[in-house]
Design a protein around this nucleic acid. Sequence first.
DNA 1: CACAACATGTAAGATGTTACATGATTGA
DNA 2: TCAATCATGTAACATCTTACATGTTGTG
Lengths: 172, 172
Amino acid sequence: MSLKYAILGLLDEEPCYGYEIKHRFEETMGDLWPISYGQLYPTLRRLTGDNLVTVQVVQGKKAVDKRVYSITEKGKALFNRWLFGEDKKIQTSIKDEFSLSLFFAERMKRDELVSAIRKLHKKTIKRLSLLRGSAKSQGLDSLHYKKFLVRKMELMMEAEEMWLRELLEDLT
Amino acid sequence: MSLKYAILGLLDEEPCYGYEIKHRFEETMGDLWPISYGQLYPTLRRLTGDNLVTVQVVQGKKAVDKRVYSITEKGKALFNRWLFGEDKKIQTSIKDEFSLSLFFAERMKRDELVSAIRKLHKKTIKRLSLLRGSAKSQGLDSLHYKKFLVRKMELMMEAEEMWLRELLEDLT
DNA sequence: CACAACATGTAAGATGTTACATGATTGA
DNA sequence: TCAATCATGTAACATCTTACATGTTGTG
């Protein structure tokens, strides 16, 4: 599980509560890697049980309790073994509904297909421009590797957009 | 579950046994969407239980039994509802170990990072040339939408390669 | 004879989404 | 006052990978 390492890495910077972990991570990685609470909170529990992190319940401004997690020595050791460890894998598979439906597209009417593609294409262009806007507003200077993560998403979305454009050109 | 629709779609062309389903699908989709037997066979059982497909056990050449699956009317109806149905989603997230490790790359030594990237870059170039080779050898003519799936993989891998190249240029 | 390809599966666990459930605080 | 944001969680289910287990058939 990689989310585990995302959490450990963030806590290795400083103690955080769950909500904060999600937001710090997604600030940069949100487009590439969204985190749901349904996955986050159970994972934090498990990490606590495995003694990789500890919790401290803290009073919020008022009545709201926060569970602030800190990384343990065991957690640090595990994170470092992962970070400096064996070859990291890169994602290679692309499993999405639209691609699958294209596998069977000979059974669809051309105009239905074209209109579905047009819709997706518009959506992709919109997401791309949003991404470019938010990338600028993030204060990611040239010292930060994190800017490359935003750049990766941009390149991926550009490829997606180009692919949809090619499809449309070919079909019309 | 989308694998379900991949199976139903294939069986809607003609009856197949499990091994054959895997190979037919992966012939085109293998790079984008590999299927494991550990997922395939249980799924076929479930589809049978749901009366979306039927099985017939057939003697192979010799002692090897094949379980040949056929789609039912109920299965056809479900597949068509899916194929012609609501907006299909396109994959947007990219959750891989390497990208995550880049999130924490400030903690790594530059030369270690560079050598890790170089390794990945070489691997990517190799995969890309393999893909281009096999794309040619597949008899995918201009009538088949399936060629666009191969093209998509190519564009994705080109984007990946370009990204790694940018990273290397920036770091050296 | 060895190895690849053919053929089927199970078990365990990793990974992830969605819907539901609750309630306080802040700003327009 | 209404919506957004803050804050935590559970339950159900969907998806997928890896390792294990078994045996045959065809090819060099």
